[in-house]
Design a protein around this nucleic acid. Sequence first.
DNA 1: CTGATGTGCAACCCTAGGGTTGCGTGTTGC
DNA 2: GCAACACGCAACCCTAGGGTTGCACATCAG
Lengths: 115, 115
Amino acid sequence: MARTEAVFDALGDPTRRHIVLSLARRSASATALAAELPISRQAVAKHLVSLRDAELVVAERVGRETLYTLDPRPLAEAAEWIARVGEEWDRRLAALRGVLEPDDESGFNRPLPNI
Amino acid sequence: MARTEAVFDALGDPTRRHIVLSLARRSASATALAAELPISRQAVAKHLVSLRDAELVVAERVGRETLYTLDPRPLAEAAEWIARVGEEWDRRLAALRGVLEPDDESGFNRPLPNI
DNA sequence: CTGATGTGCAACCCTAGGGTTGCGTGTTGC
DNA sequence: GCAACACGCAACCCTAGGGTTGCACATCAG
């Protein structure tokens, strides 16, 4: 669960989210990514280091350039964290339901009941 | 999709993730939340403002205290963003498959193919 | 060999924002 | 009415980290 920390930290930055989306479509070098962003190559390189720390990206040197490829697996962990919050929420809703009235399924996507 | 931005920003901070998890179990005041964290009430209050901006939390004044309740719906949007990256990835994998060899289903949770 | 290209590293700048303290205001309970 | 409690607001501190520039080192094309 420690890596999940790094994933959310990484996804907390808009530029890094853009990079992740770009890399989902095609592997690319820092220079190529910088071309489609309003920042320098070095700035992009720093972000790629963060993404590598979060294991969201794998670097592979080919010739004189370094290709970065997305590894979507840590994203699944982040999704699981979100799902966990949803479960917690649903459990609470279920407990509440017991006290009040029997109702329908998951409340994850339902407006708040006034508690 | 603009709110999704705020959600990831909000989730980018470990303290706020802790708060979100806590609120998933029970509504609580800033003071109560601060009691289970190594920071001051005011610091928690600031985080709650961020969470409110991301619409992840709803404040309700009851008597002399303010109860904060989780609204898990924006989390679903974040999960969708992650899913979108996964789709992009799978599409790419599918395109690759066409050129190479017919293979199995979604590669979202599979190790990287060397591209 | 040489110039062009792509990186990595280091030094530096600067703001965002996480945390703190202090204080004035509203609410509850006796 | 008066403490005690719970807030909200404002001023302030301080570091993390996002961004930049400069430079030295590989690699490729001619």
